[in-house]
């Protein structure tokens, strides 16, 4: 199958990747860019494990072809946290609230929640649940995740900034 070369920015770095037309963005990130934090849980757009930011917006990388991301800026889970290995407020809240167990769905949740709180910094409980409903988790029963989003939202309030 024909291959083509595309250019995109991934986690702030300019990347040139060679893909087939049918190569999904998720596979290009995992296999060409070696960013394996983006996980594939269903490959049909339901589970949300493959969520990445495309020009700042949360998208399912299993439903996009890599060629559709040409010229765009992609942020994966690897690009969210600071280079010194510390955790973001959202990641730290997940950790404190036992918001993960096996961790497979976690990158998708963290990316989705990061985008959600940027858009809605003061969500109600109902809005939190609604926002999370596009990501599936099989370990936690969502209990710790819901708490983590609430905690992260509290900590991200300008008044609470440290």
């Amino acid at each position: 199958m024909a291959e083509r070369t595309i250019e995109l920015t991934v986690n702030g770095e300019a990347r040139t990747v060679v893909v087939e037309d049918r190569t999904t963005l998720a596979d290009a990130l995992r296999e060409q860019c070696h960013l394996t934090g983006t996980h594939l849980g269903c490959e049909h757009g339901v589970c949300g494990a493959c969520t990445v930011l495309l020009d700042g917006e949360a998208v399912r990388s299993c439903l996009l072809f890599a060629v559709q991301a040409a010229g765009s800026e992609v942020t994966t889970i690897e690009g969210l946290s600071p280079a010194d290995g510390s955790l973001t407020t959202v990641q730290e809240a997940f950790r404190e609230c036992h918001g993960l167990q096996c961790g497979f769905c976690t990158p998708g949740f963290v990316v989705s929640v990061t985008a959600f709180l940027a858009e809605n910094p003061t969500p109600t409980d109902e809005e939190i649940r609604e926002a999370l409903s596009g990501n599936l988790c099989r370990c936690t029963g969502y209990q710790g995740i819901i708490k983590a989003v609430r905690l992260a939202a509290e900590r991200l309030q300008p008044a609470n900034a440290t």
Partner: peptide
């Protein structure tokens, strides 16, 4: 706090895939 979390939260886990 879990010791597993730092790698899993940052996309640095190692699953078979």
């Amino acid at each position: 706090n879990r010791v597993e979390d730092a790698r899993l939260l940052t996309g640095r886990g190692t699953y078979v895939d």
